[in-house]
Write a protein that binds this DNA or RNA. Structure first.
Lengths: 227, 227
DNA sequence: TTTGACTTCAAACAGTTGTTTGAATAAGGT
DNA sequence: ACCTTATTCAAACAACTGTTTGAAGTCAAA
């Protein structure tokens, strides 16, 4: 058997990187359990033991694939309430939220890993909720509170927040379904931007409806006294 | 014979049922790959080989757990356009959609299995899309087409449909997230009904907004007749 | 050239997986 | 009583899992 085509000593960390991205691709495609380190090593053109060498173990490799490629891709911070008109804010929000759908394959795969974590938790998901989902959710909650003049979010506002975010999230979770039922909806960057704008307008309509509902309805019972 | 016709043994098909529901519970909790037939058999108080005996193999058991417990729990059919006022229709739609969230544990676990299938396909998901998701989606598309006087759904209408359904779906997919961020939103049947009503109102607001958008906007460019 | 740290590799390890086997047990029909 | 059929069981099977091993290789500095 002739030696493998890859250079035997190919500058150290190259193998690590190949491993990382092969792992990202395979984990995103098939999940943690269905992906074996042997498959990853083979796809990366590296030896099985290289994953032990560079990442400790399979879980370490998964963790690296989960966090590293995203780099400093910080979630778009929500502007402080009042500094930006609500329509602009919502449009910006959905543009940011859906941005990964337009980006490179690697980012999309990371996103896919993150959503996979929701359904098939490997242990990183608590960390993910606190670091990614909670700030995003509470950012929007804060904005809506200011919008309705609330000091503290009530249940209706929480519902509204989940509904608004859920509209966006759905296009990540259900990528394959959209693909099967109406592929044109997500084809090309233009379609994504248009989608973000429509979702923003939809969210604004929902917020307006909620505002009317609150105006029409008598003051909800206050469980806590003022402090 | 694979299907045991008569219970020769007192516990006969009981073992099959115990196996089925233990499998449902464990598959829903941990997914296909992370669940071993040994664990299932032990949880069911049956022997490992009983799964081979009753279901052929692990995949057969999974399939049975996936389809059987739902029984005739048909998805609520969408009424023909025009027979029901839109607000009632949307309220009914979300009540039906969220109904499983109030139902027994078994149904919820099946639902969880179904959503798991979206992210971690085991091969049943094509079948699922065609039998469950497509009819639901196209039912709503048909209603909205009638609402806007369209012969055929355009991309905007597809977007709107996904956004509306996505709001509801999100509360299945992200049950754990809701639990972590604002548990009161989904606590108790009353909360679910209220949630369904709010989502319906939100959807109606979005539909109204879209109607206005269509009215305000010049006729969408028709590509085919130009030139 | 020799040294020594860094990197690769094939092989082996120990454990778990889904599945099969063949004997043992129970119930009914004759 | 017998025979047949249905069901259970412990054990064994082969294949695969993630991980470790120890030797071999590569390269830069001494």
């Amino acid at each position: 058997m002739s030696p493998p085509t890859v250079a035997a000593r190919s500058d150290g960390a190259q193998a690590r990187e190949r491993l990382l991205y092969a792992a990202l691709r395979l984990f995103a495609a098939s999940g943690f359990e269905r992906t074996s380190v042997r498959d990853i090593a083979q796809a990366a053109g590296a030896n099985v033991s290289a994953v032990g060498y560079y990442f400790g173990d399979k879980a370490g490799l998964y963790r690296a694939a989960f966090f590293e490629p995203l780099g400093d891709h910080c979630q778009g911070e929500m502007p402080a309430p009042g500094t930006v008109p609500l329509p602009d804010l919502m449009h910006g929000f959905f543009r940011d939220l859906l941005k990964p759908l337009k980006q490179g394959e690697a980012v999309q795969q990371v996103i896919r890993l993150h959503f996979r974590e929701i359904v098939e938790p490997t242990g990183l998901w608590k960390e993910m909720i606190e670091n990614e989902l909670r700030p995003q959710h509470e950012g929007l909650v804060r904005v809506l509170c200011a919008e309705f003049g609330l000091r503290k979010a009530d249940m209706e506002l929480q519902r509204l927040t989940f509904a608004i975010i859920g509209m966006g999230i759905h296009f990540f979770v259900a990528q394959d379904i959209v693909q099967a039922l109406a592929p044109e909806v997500m084809e090309g960057p233009g379609a994504i931007d248009a989608l973000a704008d429509r979702l923003a307008e939809g969210a604004l309509a929902m917020i307006e409806a909620e505002r009317r509902r609150r105006a029409a309805q008598p003051r909800p019972a206050r469980r806590r006294s003022t402090r």
